[in-house]
Amino acid sequence: MTTDTELSPDSAQLLEVFKALANPVRLQVLRWLRDPEKHFPVEQGIADPYEVGVCVSHIQAKLGLAQSTVSAYLAALERAGLVRSTRVGKWTHYRRDEANIARIVAVLGDSL
């Protein structure tokens, strides 16, 4: 049981989600990953964008930001449980975690 000042695990995760989505660039990346074939050059990919994800280099190229900035943004989305990363050789690919996004939406609905 939590007191009024303690956060439940679900509430703590919602705060991570809100922090991650408060940045408009991170929110845009999450939207792009919803339909990766529409937003990223599939013919240049080495893996299925839905099963494995989009290579961080493609996300970086589309954003036009430094690799370190893009990696930090994707790490924030991953900490919040919104995306998953997969290594393919020396490349990291990101895809949405649809099951966890659905769970987060349900927790949000139950929390407010």
Results as ranks from 00 to 15, higher is better:
L27Q: 10
L74M: 08
F40R: 01
R31M: 07
S57V: 13
I59V: 08
R34K: 11
A80N: 11
L77C: 03
G81Q: 05
A47I: 03
R34M: 07
V25N: 01
T86D: 04
W91Y: 12
L33C: 02
E43I: 13
E37T: 08
S8T: 13
S111T: 15
G53V: 08
A61E: 09
I104Q: 02
G64R: 06
D35R: 12
R84D: 14
A20D: 06
V25A: 06
Q67P: 07
G81T: 02
Y94L: 01
D97S: 06
A20P: 02
G53L: 04
G89C: 07
A47W: 06
Y50P: 06
V52N: 07
G81H: 00
N100A: 05
V56S: 09
L112E: 10
E6K: 14
P36A: 06
P9V: 11
N100K: 08
T2N: 15
A66T: 13
H93C: 13
W91D: 11
G45R: 08
D110R: 13
E37L: 10
A12G: 13
Q28A: 12
K38P: 05
K90P: 09
A75M: 12
L7G: 10
Y73A: 00
T5K: 15
T92K: 12
R87N: 14
A66V: 14
L27H: 09
R34D: 10
H58T: 06
K38W: 06
A22Y: 08
P9I: 12
N100I: 05
L82N: 01
K90I: 12
G109Q: 10
L14S: 04
L77R: 00
C55F: 15
K62D: 06
M1K: 11
E37K: 14
V105D: 06
E78I: 07
S68V: 15
D48Q: 03
P24F: 05
N23A: 06
N23R: 04
K38A: 13
L74K: 00
G64W: 01
L108M: 09
V42I: 11
I104G: 05
L108K: 06
K62I: 03
R34L: 04
P49H: 10
E6V: 12
L63Y: 03
T92F: 10
L30R: 03
A106K: 14
V83Y: 01
